[in-house]
């Protein structure tokens, strides 16, 4: 048993500015005709969780849009599981979207809009602020019960209550010879040869080859973002035994001058 998380609900894909997290203007008919069907199909197929669009649709941040999270996602599409924020996006209602004066206000807005789980791995302010909000009567305890029930239901369905480390044995697959072989094949099949005039390739092992350019002796461009680190730009994060383009050509070259 495993769980799928649909992301990012909804309109994140509509990058009209060409940039990441573009604000989107989507008329209702377009939303229903083009953007919702994929989510509807996935919910129907049994997806348990949905992650929310960090940006905004029609001027309302995804994490504050109770119409899309409650009326559409739960009531219409029939999501049985829970809604999770994207990375620190409740705080983003203050720092990016400026619709809340502080994190406590942002927490109230997001939880009442339908966010069941906050993704922040580095502090516990969400729990502390939410507890205060409930004690002050600003968020009904029934809303907490609803979110907790959704989260625990998914955990029960996945068998995580009986065995919290369920599936841990699959970690042996990571970095295994079989996995490495799949990676190698994927890399080879990803290479695009645009032209090969005068049979320039393959290079003869005896040819005197000059290797040059900023990407020649670095693992950064061979791995890039969302690999060993988020941005992929920290050289020290990469395995020391992996070959750069330069090193690989050196190993193949017969004339090591």
């Amino acid at each position: 048993m495993f769980s799928a998380s649909l992301k990012h609900y909804v309109g994140y894909s509509y990058a009209t500015t060409g940039g990441d997290r573009s604000p989107a203007l989507i008329p209702e008919i377009t939303l229903r005709e083009y953007f919702l069907p994929a989510f509807a199909a996935a919910v129907k197929a049994g997806a348990h969780t949905v992650m929310v669009n960090s940006s905004e649709v029609n001027g309302t941040p995804g994490h504050a849009n109770s119409y899309l999270l409650k009326n559409v996602l739960h009531d219409e599409l029939g999501l049985q599981g829970f809604v999770v924020s994207d990375w620190m996006d409740i705080k983003g209602l203050v720092s990016t979207h400026h619709i809340a004066a502080n994190e406590k206000e942002a927490t109230r807005i997001a939880v009442l809009a339908g966010i069941d789980m906050s993704m922040v791995p580095s502090d516990y302010s969400f729990s502390d602020l939410l507890l205060e909000l409930v004690q002050e009567g600003k968020v009904p305890a029934s809303r907490i019960d609803e979110a907790v029930r959704r989260i625990l239901t998914v955990k029960y369905q996945l068998g995580l209550v009986d065995d919290p480390l369920r599936g841990i044995e699959s970690k042996t697959v990571i970095g295994s010879p079989e996995s490495r072989q799949v990676s190698l094949e994927a890399a080879r099949e990803s290479i695009t040869l645009l032209k090969n005039e005068n049979q320039a390739l393959p290079l003869a092992k005896t040819a005197h080859v000059l290797v040059t350019g900023p990407d020649a002796d670095s693992l950064i461009p061979l791995n890039n973002g969302w690999s060993y680190t988020w941005q992929g730009d920290r050289a020290s994060a990469y395995p020391k035994d992996h070959a750069t383009i330069l090193k690989a050509i050196q190993e193949k070259s017969a004339r090591r001058t």
Partner: peptide, 25 residues
């Protein structure tokens, strides 16, 4: 690099963007 290129049979020039993901990109 140009001088070395003039003496080489073939040149492999490795160009590209700096690494990035999401909004920083």
């Amino acid at each position: 690099a140009v001088e070395a290129a003039s003496k080489a049979d073939a040149v492999v020039i490795c160009l590209g963007e700096w690494a990035y993901a999401e909004t920083p990109g």
